[in-house]
């Protein structure tokens, strides 16, 4: 089990398994809070000053995500936006959750979203958020924790406060307990 943050995935090269070619670079990480999984990534072209690529990479076309590269079978895995699922082909960029406020149902602030934590390998399960607490220190909350997500704020159940962890190891253990408490397992 390898836990990685979205910021570690962003900027990784996309490499083909068959040719070993470096065909693109990860730009945005797109995930479904509802399903709790990665749904795809948008891409940058390769090159020092190259900009955004028109093609996208749906999660189904990802062979594996590792610490140093996102692997795809071949270049045909990168698809035009019209041929990709709507959420990946035309991502709602206004729903970027980084820097979103995290509020409990009771109205208490837990901090801001600093990053997304994913279980990588061949799956793209989203396990939690890295947060920046009001005091400035970092912490982690498990997912599914949010009741609603927008480009401005995440609203989470009151009990999420009990599950704020200081490190990724603690988050791994907290996820199962948190899901059991929510009756999801």
């Amino acid at each position: 089990m390898l836990l990685m943050t979205a910021s570690q995935i962003r900027g990784l090269p996309v490499v083909t398994v068959q040719g070993g070619e470096d065909v693109a670079e990860v730009r945005d990480v797109i995930y479904s809070p509802e399903a709790g999984r990665l749904v795809g990534v948008t891409l940058n072209k390769r090159g020092f000053l190259a900009g955004r690529s028109r093609d996208v990479l749906p999660a189904e076309a990802i062979h594996a995500i590792g610490q140093d590269a996102v692997m795809v079978l071949d270049e045909s895995s990168l698809v035009a936006p019209e041929d990709a699922p709507e959420d990946v082909g035309h991502p709602a960029t206004e729903r970027n959750v980084l820097e979103d406020d995290i509020l409990t149902e009771g109205g208490a602030s837990l901090g801001k979203v600093a990053d997304l934590v994913l279980l990588v390998g061949s799956s793209g399960e989203v396990v939690g958020y890295q947060i920046e607490k009001p005091g400035g220190e970092r912490g982690y909350i498990p997912l599914p924790a949010q009741l609603s997500v927008s480009g401005v704020a995440l609203v989470v159940p009151n009990m999420t406060e009990e599950f704020v962890q200081d490190d990724l190891v603690g988050l791994g253990a907290a996820v199962d307990e948190f899901r059991a408490r929510l009756g999801l397992t």
Binding site: G11, V26, S32, P33
Partner: peptide, 9 residues
């Protein structure tokens, strides 16, 4: 140009 974010569907 490189941009990037974490987008929720």
């Amino acid at each position: 140009r490189r941009g990037g974010g974490v987008i929720a569907t």
